[in-house]
Amino acid sequence: MLERIADFMSHPDLIFGAEQIDNPEERFLVILRYYLSGWHIKPKGVKKPYNPVLGEFFRCRYDYPNGTQGVYIAEQVSHHPPISAYFYFSPENQVRIIGEIRPKSKFLGNSVSTNMEGENRIMLMGKPDDGEYVITMPNMYARGILFGKMVFELGDTCVAKNEKTGLACDLEFKIKGFFSGTYNAIVGRVRHYGADVGEVSGRWSHEIEFKDKTGKKHTLFDVDSEAGKRVAAKIVSPEDEQEPNESRRQWRELTKAIVAKDMDAATDAKCAVEDAQREDRRRRDENGEEFVPRFFEKRDGGWVPKFQIPADPREAAAAVQEWIWPSS
């Protein structure tokens, strides 16, 4: 799950330079396009991501064609209730994203639904007067878990808004009906201080269009376009060089067993991680200790990174690297 969140950082070129756009409505559409571009990247078939354990973290780096870099860190900061906090930062491109996800799952017969509480807070640091662009998440549904074809869908409504500019969009992710409709449909209306600006429509897995109030249309994002195929690769340290509670190393025995289709070994590997978690909790309880996240802290009701961003981009780039990958 912690690594899955990083897929939303896969098309950074869609947002780089947005602070140079003078029109706030056009800037808002750039943010919206960036957010919607991450949903098409998902595992083939329906594969439930591993539930992160307390203190687990995932970190990676991105090297971009323009010679700049981005970094990403996510940590499981709470187990009951489950909360994943994350931070993305590209100093030279002046983009910062802070977010948290609080999933709540329940079984619905042949389906599982997951309410994705939480929000993404995107900031164009080159346009500080905009403040934060805040975007909530749609809910997720896995259908056919007991019988029939397994299908992953997004459903219900999420909201993208910027209070400083007065722009907002209610995005409805539509679930396919039994006898009609289509998979992965999305519709939404963009408003500026309540007045209609235009309409978003399409399929988040294929192509999304924007139609302005005059009726003029243009493509907001197309998965099959050059931009859609240009996915930023995650650069991750080899598992043997990772810390024990980094995601890929934490779960590597389970991953190996699943790839080998050895369900007995998979069960043993999963139990080993869970048993270690219970032992850690027992030890903390005996010593009267509370779990303290390594990278994030709770402030004003939300989870934020334990990192102060320096004003100079070059200094910030070095500082964030040292914070996420300390040299000593």
Score class of each variant (00 low, 15 high):
residue 173 F to L: 10
residue 272 A to M: 05
residue 276 A to E: 13
residue 200 V to T: 10
residue 290 E to D: 14
residue 33 R to K: 14
residue 149 K to L: 12
residue 300 D to E: 15
residue 218 H to E: 15
residue 99 G to F: 06
residue 267 T to M: 06
residue 276 A to D: 13
residue 160 A to P: 03
residue 306 K to G: 11
residue 122 I to L: 15
residue 131 G to D: 08
residue 163 E to G: 10
residue 144 G to T: 04
residue 122 I to W: 03
residue 35 Y to P: 00
residue 89 F to M: 11
residue 50 Y to M: 01
residue 227 A to T: 11
residue 164 K to A: 09
residue 224 D to H: 14
residue 147 F to D: 01
residue 101 I to Y: 00
residue 37 S to E: 07
residue 198 G to C: 07
residue 243 E to H: 07
residue 193 Y to I: 05
residue 100 E to M: 11
residue 227 A to I: 12
residue 25 E to R: 04
residue 146 L to H: 11
residue 59 R to L: 15
residue 46 V to T: 15
residue 284 R to S: 07
residue 316 A to R: 05
residue 129 D to F: 01
residue 279 E to G: 04
residue 45 G to L: 09
residue 18 A to D: 00
residue 69 Q to M: 14
residue 78 S to W: 00
residue 300 D to F: 14
residue 295 F to S: 03
residue 296 F to S: 05
residue 163 E to A: 14
residue 7 D to C: 02
residue 184 N to P: 00
residue 289 E to R: 15
residue 302 G to Y: 05
residue 17 G to P: 04
residue 258 I to Y: 04
residue 39 W to R: 01
residue 80 H to S: 08
residue 193 Y to L: 10
residue 165 T to Q: 08
residue 122 I to Y: 09
residue 229 K to S: 09
residue 280 D to A: 15
residue 275 D to Y: 05
residue 319 A to I: 04
residue 90 S to Q: 07
residue 271 C to T: 02
residue 197 V to H: 04
residue 139 N to V: 02
residue 78 S to M: 11
residue 266 A to L: 04
residue 95 V to G: 08
residue 264 D to T: 11
residue 14 L to E: 08
residue 185 A to D: 03
residue 52 P to R: 07
residue 131 G to Y: 13
residue 263 M to H: 13
residue 93 N to R: 01
residue 280 D to I: 06
residue 250 Q to W: 03
residue 187 V to C: 12
residue 37 S to T: 03
residue 3 E to W: 02
residue 143 R to T: 10
residue 93 N to E: 15
residue 277 Q to E: 10
residue 76 Q to N: 08
residue 269 A to T: 06
residue 220 L to T: 05
residue 96 R to H: 10
residue 43 P to C: 02
residue 31 I to C: 13
residue 40 H to G: 00
residue 291 F to G: 14
residue 128 P to T: 02
residue 187 V to G: 02
residue 139 N to P: 06
residue 12 P to Y: 09
residue 27 R to H: 09
residue 86 Y to E: 08
residue 70 G to N: 09
residue 70 G to W: 00
residue 20 Q to D: 13
residue 234 K to V: 02
residue 30 V to N: 08
residue 216 K to L: 04
residue 62 Y to K: 14
residue 26 E to Q: 12
residue 264 D to Y: 10
residue 278 R to W: 12
residue 42 K to H: 12
residue 120 N to F: 06
residue 293 P to K: 10
residue 92 E to V: 02
residue 22 D to H: 03
residue 327 S to E: 14
residue 267 T to Y: 02
residue 247 S to V: 11
residue 47 K to D: 15
residue 170 D to V: 01
residue 141 Y to M: 13
residue 47 K to I: 15
residue 217 K to H: 06
residue 63 D to L: 13
residue 115 N to M: 00
residue 297 E to V: 14
residue 25 E to D: 14
residue 317 A to D: 05
residue 182 T to M: 13
residue 264 D to A: 12
residue 228 G to T: 04
residue 301 G to T: 07
residue 328 S to T: 03
residue 179 F to H: 02
residue 11 H to S: 05
residue 275 D to C: 04
residue 6 A to I: 00
residue 132 E to H: 01
residue 189 R to T: 15
residue 309 I to F: 06
residue 307 F to H: 05
residue 108 L to E: 13
residue 174 K to S: 06
residue 59 R to K: 15
residue 299 R to L: 13
